[in-house]
Design a protein around this nucleic acid. Structure first.
Lengths: 259, 259
DNA sequence: AAACGCTGTTTCATTATTCAAAACACTCAG
DNA sequence: CTGAGTGTTTTGAATAATGAAACAGCGTTT
């Protein structure tokens, strides 16, 4: 495998997880040969890795097609992750309330380096849905949640994003310069909510607020997203107030939990 | 490590996942030494495995305590598992409805060999909760869901359980003989719901029904569980009818989905 | 039918990696 | 200061992963 593996660390384990990364929602099934080709690795290596992971329940093999897909062991381990236990368990009901009140898709996310990670999601009851996936990452600089979380983060974390300027222009509206992003973050901190006006995807608007714990530490972000044509400027205060009430409710239930 | 590893298969990967198994909800944090001791393995082996898994995001290290816990990569991979996507996503709202209607904890589970695996759960609004974990396994022969799923399963799967007789007596009420279990399964098939009368845990009662897809294949099981002292015999038909309505609703939404 | 292209699987010698024991660095308690 | 507990790094020895090639199957094409 011509993957860059760190010396000192266990290469097989790294390979195994790099291999698991190939199983995305877009391509959930892989055969031995195609996967070996795609990873630039030897067939027998992949074959043995797949066989090992299948025996462990990490992958499961489709009898008919002989192809592999992610197995229930990962499902099990994923649910043991403490962040899931601690946060999502007690925040999900609030997300649902907010989603009902706003009638748009609601997300819960945290900052992870220069990206945000979606921890939970409740979809809009309306037809038009947003194609996010729980557990996945998105750049912080071009999402409402990302900018909100950055605005509340310490300067070290902000710098990590600003260092990467010019930032990747996801759409024509994406903020790409460090100066502009700095101004934007200051403004967000000021009014304590963030807006994403089609900065990640044309046609997609998002409003985000921060969630603090009872010690005042930033825990996560809460947002409502919907199609731009459904979004009315005058309704913004309404959205923000519902989101803020949700964040407050989570704060009450979450105690002194920290990331 | 004196773990039994299959020859031919990648040992490091097997070790890595055996190691991950140690991170349970009861003991979510491990240091290098204690984990090595607990697994009967060498410290440096565990050290490098932990370091590798941490670099991959599979584990994360607590700065203060230097201990490790499960990381967000597993959270992410867990949410990519297709069963989660396909089933839980569209069944969760129904579980909530049922939980509201019955006011007891509701579970969704599938049969996996001789055990059931909990895919989803909505807890009772009442104080007394059941200590199940999403993703975890329980023996099929002594749970309502397990007996229900077994009753609908093919004889091969039933035999796998019956072969293990005398079955493990979880409580004094557990069915332990093959003949008795066979009779029980026949009766369950007859009336198309299963009861667990404190067969897994004293004080715990459970009612379960099957969920079929539109082709009539068994997909999963749906159950309501609660403390025995809250359970009234005459309310049973009421519980069953609510569960059955839930199962029917899922059937409508699930199309021809198969395990 | 036979040759082809495509699977997944197995073999085997070479190589590189992982291993375990011990030493090291550090913290905390007595 | 000593001792027992951490996590980390180093060692040579031994194990285990590796890739090329051969194999076995299954359809399609020639």
């Amino acid at each position: 495998m011509r993957m860059d593996l760190d010396k000192q660390l266990n290469g097989s384990v790294q390979k195994a997880f790099l291999l698991l990364e190939a199983f995305t929602l877009d391509k959930p099934e892989w055969g031995v040969s195609e996967l070996a080709r795609s990873l630039g690795a030897n067939k027998s290596t992949i074959y043995r890795l797949l066989a090992t992971l299948e025996k462990l329940g990490v992958l499961q093999q489709n009898r008919r097609s002989e192809k592999y897909r992610l197995g229930l062991k990962l499902f099990e381990l994923g649910h043991r992750v403490s962040i899931h236990q601690a946060v999502v368990h007690c925040t999900h009901p609030v997300l649902e309330e907010v989603a009902r009140a706003i009638a748009e898709t609601v997300h819960l996310a945290i900052l992870e380096g220069t990206h945000i990670r979606y921890l939970d999601k409740v979809e809009s009851p309306q037809g038009l849905k947003i194609s996010t996936e729980i557990g996945s990452l998105r750049p912080a600089h071009c999402t409402g949640l990302g900018k909100m979380l950055l605005a509340c983060a310490d300067s070290e974390q902000q710098q990590a994003v600003l260092d990467a300027t010019p930032l990747f222009a996801q759409t024509a509206n994406t903020i790409v310069s460090a100066a502009a992003l700095r101004r934007e973050l200051a403004e967000i901190r000021e009014r304590s909510f963030a807006l994403d006006r089609e900065e990640y995807e044309i046609g997609l608007i998002c409003v985000a607020v921060p969630i603090f714990n009872q010690q005042g530490d930033l825990v996560a972000g809460l947002s409502a997203s919907g199609p731009a044509n459904r979004f009315r400027e005058e309704a913004l205060p309404h959205y923000v107030s519902i989101l803020k009430r949700g964040a407050e409710k989570i704060r009450e239930g979450i105690g002194n939990f920290q990331l």
